[in-house]
Amino acid sequence: MELSAKAFKYGDDINTDYIISGKYKFKSADMEAMAHHAMEELDPHYYDKVKPNGGFLVAGKNFGMGSSREQAPLVLIHSNTKAVLAKSFARIFYRNAINTGLPVVECDTDLIDDGDDLVVDLEAGVVRNLTKGTEIPFPPLPPVMAQLLSDGGLVEHFKKYGGFNL
């Protein structure tokens, strides 16, 4: 799967409260409505910037630390975030992203600046930075996660097999 979009770059240790504040997650179960508040603590205009043409959320280390809220990857998906690229991910967010179908790429994001045009090739394991003319390799997903992502997430995996078939 090849994904193309612009990079929207943020810092290290972005927690799930910043991705979607706890005060919103209880107001409703409507992810489309909640997505307007995605990343609000760090960038009040994230939704408006990313929604029209899509984008890659690019961050430093430990992206998604904190709570287990699945609303975090879901509001990113609903704000048209194509994938999250970070130097490292917090464990629960990483699983939630795969389970809900949001691609996560662990790579050297120092080689990406805000606004760069990127192509992410998930199978080949490479980020092509069209703006800089560079390529950033990344290790493939562990087989279990690759299978879940290719099945379309954990719900689809369960529908397909009636349980775990890993």
Partner: peptide
């Protein structure tokens, strides 16, 4: 801690 979809899979299976 796990997310809701992992939780659902565990509740189901």
């Amino acid at each position: 801690g796990v997310g809701s979809t992992d939780g659902a899979a565990a509740m189901a299976s």
